[in-house]
C-alpha cells in the first residue's frame, strides 16, 4: 500500500518537474514567434500579425500596458517617445485596436497597449503607403559582377537603418529576386527584396555599397511631451490593499499557531 502511494506521489512530482521544464519552451510557431500570453492564445484567430515598431504617444505623457484588453491590471508604463514593438494587433468589441508587446528587459513579460496611444515609426510599410504609386516593376538591371563584396540593404530609401548586407559569395547559390523599383528625388535607383537568405529591404542599385547614403529626416505630427505617471502601476493596481490583506492574514495565522500550538514539541511518531 505504501509503495503504491509512493509511486503515485512520485508520478505527480515527475509531472511537476516536467511543468518546470516546459516553462523554458516558449517558441511554438513555425516561423513567426508567438507571445506566451493567455489572452493571445485564446484570441489567436482574431489577432493580426504586424511586427512593427511604434513610439509611445499617450495623452497623459505616457502609455500604459495592461494585462489584456479586458483588464484594468496595469503591467508597465512607457513614457512618450519610447519604442514599443508590437507583434500582433487585436480589435476588441468596441472597435479599439490593442497591440501586444514584449518587454525587452529579460523578464519575458507581455502587455497590451492601445494602438491609438502609439505613433507608428516610419518604416518600410509607411514608405510604401507614401510612395506606392511611384513603384515600377523590377527591370532586371542588377548586375552582381559590377558590385563589390558587400551590398547594403536598407529599411527603405532614405532610411538610416541598415537591415542587412548581401555578400558576393552568397550569389553563387542564387541571386536575390527584386520585387519592384523606385527612383528617389536625387535620381538614385532602388529595388526591393522581399526575402533573401533571411534579409529583406531596399538596395540602392545606383550605389549599392555605400553605407553613408543621405538620410531623409522624418517629421512626426502630434507628438505629446513625455511625463512620468503620478503612481506606479503596482500602486494603481492596489498594492497597498494587497499588502494590507497579506499582512493581516500572516498576523492572524501566526497568532493562531502560537495560541493553539504554543510550545508544543513533537510527541507523536506515526
Amino acid at each position: 500500500m505504501k509503495r503504491f502511494m509512493f509511486s503515485k506521489v512520485l508520478a505527480v512530482l515527475v509531472m511537476c518537474f516536467l511543468a518546470v521544464i516546459w516553462n523554458f519552451v516558449f517558441v511554438y510557431g513555425d516561423v513567426i514567434w508567438e507571445p506566451r500570453d493567455s489572452f493571445y492564445e485564446k484570441e489567436r484567430e482574431n489577432c493580426v500579425y504586424v511586427n512593427r515598431a511604434y513610439y509611445a504617444n499617450g495623452e497623459k505623457g505616457y502609455v500604459t500596458a495592461y494585462k489584456n484588453p479586458e483588464s484594468n491590471w496595469a503591467v508597465a508604463d512607457f513614457e512618450n517617445g519610447n519604442d514599443v514593438y508590437i507583434q500582433f494587433i487585436y480589435k476588441d468589441k468596441s472597435g479599439r485596436e490593442w497591440g501586444i508587446t514584449e518587454f525587452n528587459d529579460g523578464s519575458e513579460k507581455n502587455g497590451w497597449v492601445l494602438i491609438d496611444e502609439l505613433i507608428a515609426r516610419y518604416d518600410h510599410n509607411s514608405f510604401c503607403e507614401d510612395h506606392e504609386k511611384e513603384f515600377v516593376d523590377y527591370d532586371g538591371s542588377f548586375d552582381p559582377d559590377s558590385c563589390g563584396d558587400k551590398i547594403i540593404v536598407w529599411e527603405y530609401p532614405g532610411s538610416d537603418a541598415i537591415t542587412g548586407k548581401l555578400y558576393k559569395e552568397d550569389f553563387k547559390e542564387y541571386l536575390p529576386e527584386f520585387s519592384y523599383m523606385y527612383k528617389d528625388d536625387e535620381g538614385r535607383q532602388w529595388a526591393y527584396i522581399g526575402y533573401y537568405m533571411g534579409r529583406c529591404g531596399w538596395v540602392c542599385l545606383s550605389d549599392p555599397e555605400n553605407e553613408n547614403l543621405p538620410v531623409i529626416k522624418v517629421e512626426y505630427e502630434g507628438l505629446i511631451p513625455a511625463s512620468k505617471p503620478d503612481k506606479s502601476p503596482a500602486v494603481r493596481n492596489g498594492l497597498w490593499l494587497f499588502i494590507g490583506l497579506a499582512v493581516g492574514i500572516i498576523i492572524v495565522s501566526m497568532v493562531l499557531v502560537k495560541v493553539f500550538y504554543g510550545k508544543r514539541r513533537r510527541k507523536l511518531k506515526v
Binding site: E108, F242, A246, V257
Partner: peptide, 30 residues
Amino acid sequence: VLVLLVNLLTNPAAVLCYYILAFYIEMNIL
C-alpha cells in the same frame, strides 16, 4: 490544521513578494 495555518502564513507573503519583485525587478519570472 497546522498545514492550513502554515500555508496561510507563507502563501500570501510569497504571492505578495513575487508581485512586488515582478514589477520592480527586470528578471525572468521563474
